[in-house]
Amino acid sequence: MPRSLSLTGRILTRLWLPVVLAAAWWVSSAGSTSLYFPPLSKILAAVWTQWAAGPARAQLASSLEHLVTGYALACLLGVGFGALLWSLRHVRDATSPYVYFLYVLPAPVLVPAAMTLFGLGFSMKVVLIAFAAMWPVLLNTLDGMRGVDPVALDTARALGVPPARRVLSVVLRAASPQIAAGLRNSLQVAIILMVVSEWVASTDGIGYYIVNSQESFDYTGMWSGIIVLAIIGTVANLAFVAAENRILHWHYGARAVEGAR
């Protein structure tokens, strides 16, 4: 096993590449007069004037609203249906081909259908995000629950844990590392669907802003939207990892001990 680095060392190993790339972009684009590739300095200025302090803040807010609502729904539905399928073996056997069928369907193709069913507003975007992001959670929940150790279940029965509580505090808990993997996967899907749903026939959101800027030849605005998206993705992912490390610290602790033995 490699010797563990100090905290500063770890931060440096993680950060050197993005810093180098950003610097390269900054330097190479500095004197650019190209309409399509404006200087990074101008893009970052736009991120500040448009997104942080300016009019695009409303687009950011409405995007985040779509994302948070849709993702929360996806998590609830995914874990809920996953647990339900786990407990009803016959339903599971009957539905599993369709579940995979829906899972492999690229969700963006559902945009037209969602528009037809739910119009162009808030609910269309939330439904689309929730529907697409539900599958990784659902399948990981189901898989994690099926992999629960029979000894853990026998123990629960021997201790007198009633059936409903066995599912909640033993099976779901034992499956939680895998459920977390599903939730993380779903977060990426949710962000993609947030943008895609705003591209089409929409009047708000980051996706709309990016397309609208591009169509009106405001390439600085377009690039600033892309950078804002990258920031949202990074922050969401960091928050997710932080929460995961806190909640699943027992899992990583136990695994580290196992690896050392």
Partner: peptide, 21 residues
């Protein structure tokens, strides 16, 4: 019919029987 409340069980494999969380 099921494990009575007045029965205690200790399994061989403590590593799997104790809940790591």
């Amino acid at each position: 019919r099921s494990v009575p409340a007045a029965v205690g069980v200790v399994f061989q494999d403590y590593g799997r029987s104790l809940y790591p969380w």
